[in-house]
């Protein structure tokens, strides 16, 4: 495993830890999109189906279990925890899952490498992950008060796939793999969606201002 990949995974892990920390410490999920979190549960469930079928490494299996467990834990907090759920921005988190899940599933049925159950779900998970942040970004645009933890959470979540792009470039030149259009393009689109957010996040950090996204 190269440094980009490890940095990407650690960034991803850190973003989740930060979100759980925010929820547990402040007993609030204000500014967090339940839609995005639920999409992540779908992403992880469809991608990590191979968890009990193919063994890669202890690291790989552990990380998959952590991502599955924490994503479900976050959704549980937002939906069922009696204090946390009252802080959820129900009225502003209006993006519909359906409009992302259905097109991604149809696309996975049309564009994939092999027509097998596992492969279609794996492809679907990559397509869905690339757009899963959209409800969160829409919610942030509507929020006038984005707290630091939420801003940094989204930043780390975006940076993770960006680091994977470097990892893919590195692997392409150092390993004997073929061109992998599906993860590469999905990852590129995923990172591109964050571009605007990155710009405003870094600007607010440099100027020591509160983060605010233009509507």
């Amino acid at each position: 495993m190269n440094a980009f990949r490890l940095a990407g995974d650690m960034t991803h892990l850190l973003s989740i830890i930060l979100l759980l920390l925010k929820i547990r410490a402040t007993k609030s999920c204000a500014g967090i999109s339940l839609k995005t979190q639920e999409l992540y549960v779908i992403v992880f469930m469809s991608r990590y189906l191979d968890l009990f079928r193919t063994y890669y490494s202890l690291y790989n299996s552990l990380m998959k279990i952590i991502f599955l467990g924490t994503s479900m834990c976050i959704v549980w907090y937002m939906r069922s925890h009696k204090v946390v759920r009252q802080t959820y921005n129900n009225d502003e988190d209006t993006f519909r899952h359906f409009f992302l899940v259905l097109p991604c599933f149809v696309l996975a049925l049309l564009v994939h490498r092999n027509f097998t159950f596992i492969e279609i779900l794996w492809t679907f998970s990559l397509y869905l992950e690339s757009v899963a942040i959209l409800p969160q970004l829409v919610l942030l645009q509507k929020s006038s008060n984005i707290d630091n933890l939420t801003g940094t959470y989204v930043f780390l979540l975006g940076a993770y796939r960006g680091l994977y792009l470097f990892n893919w470039v590195y692997r392409f030149f150092t390993e004997n793999h073929r061109v992998r259009w599906i993860p590469w393009l999905s990852g590129l689109i995923q990172t591109a969606i964050y571009t605007d957010f990155f710009y405003y996040y870094i600007r607010s950090w440099k100027n020591r201002e509160k983060l605010k996204l233009p509507a």
Partner: peptide
Amino acid sequence: EVLHEPKDEL
């Protein structure tokens, strides 16, 4: 040549 895509990533 590797026949299948490596799915060793997360």
